[in-house]
Amino acid sequence: MPLPITRTSPFELPSTPGASRDLAGASLALWFDDPERERQAAQRLALCDLSALPKAGYKGNGATAWLQTHQTPLPAETFESTRLTDGGIIVKVAADEYFLEAGPSGVDLPVPSNGEFPPDCFPVVREDASLVLCGARAAAVLLQVCGYDFSTATLDRVIYTRVAGVDSAVFPAAGYPHTHVKLWCDRSYAVSLWNSLVEICEEFEGPIIGAQALFTDLP
């Protein structure tokens, strides 16, 4: 039975989605007007809100050991990442801390079967806004908002930097159909960041799209 919708995105979206899917109590917009047009826009330039994807953080000396019992290989070095089975991402954000974002198919994030975390592993609420800038012109947009040289960045490695004045974790992602940069930032700053990106994307004729264009395996 689907959960009632209790989670909402921080962003104002352009219109009611043409299709959406429920994801752990949130609604993920799949497309707005025309899925085919959005696929094309994703090649060129588009902005997508993925804040509905469930996220979690784990901290403490026991975090690595506990996650290893639950997950596919963990990233070895700080700022590196590995993938969850459904396309989700695990990032090692510090020596004793991990950040997980589920993929779009709604696979549950790890929780202890008895509800009790082992000593020295503490869950951390992660409600970061999650958005994606994709397409060939994404680099041009980033040049207007960020002083980091992404042309030298390693794929699938997180970069903590300032984007349009907002401290963000930027993740140039590999393995997607298009050039694809993911940004996570504190939810309270997210509307400011989103509005700046929307304004710049509009100048480059990049629309807001749904998640379907980003994930080939979505219906």
């Binding site: 004045g165 907002v166 509307v191 400011s192 304004e199």
Partner: peptide, 14 residues
């Protein structure tokens, strides 16, 4: 240029 002076908003802003 463009101004980037981010404001913080609570989830209930709207």
């Amino acid at each position: 240029g463009r101004r980037f002076h981010p404001l913080r908003r609570t989830p209930l802003d709207a």
